[in-house]
Amino acid sequence: MDEKGKRLLQAINENSEYAFNEFYRMYAPFVLKIAKQLVSDPLEAEDICHDIFLEVFEKPGEYDDAKGTVKAWLAVKTKHRSIDRLRKKKPVLVRKLEQLDTKEAVKTELEVLKSLEKNVLLEALAHLPEKQREVIYGAYFENKTQTELARTLNKPLGTIKSNVRYGLNNLRKYKKLRQWFA
């Protein structure tokens, strides 16, 4: 499949629309799967998929087979574009965060969340209900809920909560949050 993908990319480079159609047919479901997983929104995922393939059509020569397979190239491209979308569209990020309702769900998304600028993430978190914010925030810093943090740190839950709230509202100090708890 990858050899075919490379040949199609070469043909796209020579302006073959037919090769592009074939390439799109082969890889669009894969790109969509990743985009949907990363942005948790089917319409945004389609938008990302569209942009990815348009970029492929315009710059097929960007693929470097020394770095990996065509699928890997598309996967990494999709990830970058999805993160960019989350960064630029706060409602999309908020909707994504809303769906992270368990610690496990947050853990699988940490790589994406960590790619976002902290202020972007914290601003989006501020739109969530407190309980959910707590789950994400705890998982983000130490994979712990605020209750677990309170127990671990032997601090009153109220202190932890107010510190978290303060952290959410004070973007410059987020990095020191763990130090405040300790």
Binding site: P29, P42, H50, L110
Partner: peptide
């Protein structure tokens, strides 16, 4: 690696909608 393993774990791929095909 853990991130990609989680993202790619989902078996089923998603067929693009007719609207996306047309737009493309």
């Amino acid at each position: 690696w853990g991130h990609w393993r989680a993202v790619l774990a989902q078996e089923s791929e998603i067929e693009p909608s007719d609207a996306l095909n047309r737009r493309m």
